[in-house]
């Protein structure tokens, strides 16, 4: 008990935590509160904020929620739905690609190769994400690398329209998020006790059965962490859909970015950003509950 601890020592932990609280407060909580305030306001003609004339009336009439009600209009709901769908597909594709890759690095590759292979997974981070997304444009353009190669080999007669489609956006998203799925999966596959798989096989389970009954449940923390790490950024992505999706593919991220940069409607942009944050928090809550229900140590 803290009865015998002198007062100075009792406050020491709080003092030590002060820098953290200060940083979080100034750089995270305060800006969020400012944005929350803005989201209840109205835009003026020049893209600034309209002064509040009658605070009482605005609150009572519910007019301060106008930006939030507007976000429920069908056109915005459609964008939200599209974003959600894209994020789900991205996450699923990443999981399907990353699991075998992580498994090979963790369990199949000889030990001295592991570092090299993990390095290859991380190397793309040395280049700016924007530049790497531009590189995808060069690959997918009508006169890009893929079309040139296909045309040259005579497999196709006229160039394929690869760019500015959902497929292009999906490719870009998967490419960008893949390492965030591979790394947590690798971490939990690396820790997996191989004798458990041998035990499953000894008890009559074939390769597939031992994979789904032992390997997958035991790497669940890695799967959950990877899903969260991929799903959340995919939900708010705007660079990829902007560059690879053209004007046709608008995602939640683009919508928000547009409100601030193009439409100059900060209040509406803030309201949308808050809704996205709420959606992300909801995902994290589901993640935490799922991990706890599985009775496991979370990896995140």
């Amino acid at each position: 008990m803290s009865r015998d601890v002198p007062p100075a020592r009792r406050s020491a932990p709080w003092l030590l935590l002060a820098p953290t609280w200060l940083t979080l407060g100034l750089l995270l909580v305060l800006p969020l509160l400012l944005m929350l305030g803005i989201s209840f306001r109205e835009r003026d003609v020049y893209g600034g904020l309209k002064p509040i004339e009658d605070l009482g009336a605005t609150v009572v009439s519910g007019a301060f929620l106008a930006n939030y009600t507007r976000s429920l209009e069908p056109i915005y709901l459609a964008i939200a739905w599209r974003s959600l769908w894209m994020a789900v597909v991205t996450t699923a594709v990443c999981l399907v690609i990353a699991y075998p890759v992580a498994y090979c690095i963790a369990a199949v590759a000889p030990p001295r190769w592991k570092t090299v292979l993990l390095g290859l997974v991380v190397i793309p981070f040395w280049t700016s994400f924007l530049i790497r997304t531009y590189a995808w444009m060069f690959l997918l353009r009508t006169e890009g690398l893929i079309n040139t190669a296909l045309l040259g080999s005579g497999l196709i007669g006229k160039p394929l329209e690869l760019l500015y489609r959902d497929g292009a956006v999906l490719a870009g998203l998967v490419y960008g998020e893949l390492p965030f799925m591979i790394l947590p999966l690798y971490a939990s596959l690396e820790k997996l006790d191989r004798t458990l798989i041998e035990a499953a096989r000894d008890l009559g389970a074939g390769r597939l059965a031992s994979f789904f009954r032992v390997t997958v449940p035991l790497t669940f923390p890695g799967i959950a962490a990877g899903v969260v790490l991929v799903f959340i950024p995919s939900l708010g992505q705007f660079i990829v859909s902007d560059l690879l999706g053209g004007a046709k593919t608008m995602l939640a991220g683009n919508l928000i970015q547009n409100q601030f940069a193009v439409a100059r409607n900060k209040p509406f942009g803030s309201a949308l950003a808050f809704e996205l944050t709420a959606a992300v928090l909801l995902c994290l809550l589901v993640y935490a509950l799922a991990v706890r229900r599985a009775g496991r140590e979370p990896l995140l």
């Binding site: 004798t195 035990a199 449940p217 035991l218």
Partner: peptide
């Protein structure tokens, strides 16, 4: 019966 028992922890 494995040396460290290899019980499924989940």
């Amino acid at each position: 019966v494995f040396q460290d028992y290899a019980l499924f922890p989940h």
